[in-house]
């Protein structure tokens, strides 16, 4: 009974958190892990910490000159 009430709330909260994280350039880690498992089975998967660092460096374009914000 309780589950049916909280499940949609949980889903919305999760979506808000995912939106907030992507706003600052960090995509969904679970989706990354799922993708690596399904498409590249047996290959190494970055830990969350490594994933975070990789995305952070990429967003601010260490050496890529990426434009990710506007005036």
């Amino acid at each position: 009974m309780r589950k049916t009430v909280t499940a949609p709330m949980f889903k919305i909260a999760r979506r808000i958190i995912r939106t907030a994280r992507l706003m600052v350039g960090i995509p969904d880690y679970d989706a990354y892990v799922a993708h690596r498992r399904n498409v590249h089975p047996g290959e190494p998967i970055m830990s969350y910490e490594a994933f975070f660092r990789e995305r952070q460096a990429s967003r601010y374009g260490e050496g890529s000159g990426k434009i990710n914000r506007c005036c």
């Binding site: 979506r15 939106t19 992507l22 706003m23 995509p27 989706a31 993708h35 690596r36 498409v39």
Partner: peptide, 18 residues
């Protein structure tokens, strides 16, 4: 080209926010 990093299919509301 899904790699879970630069290229990753993203829900439209989440991508709208981004």
């Amino acid at each position: 080209f899904n790699d879970g990093l630069d290229y990753c299919p993203t829900d439209k509301t989440v991508l709208f926010g981004h």
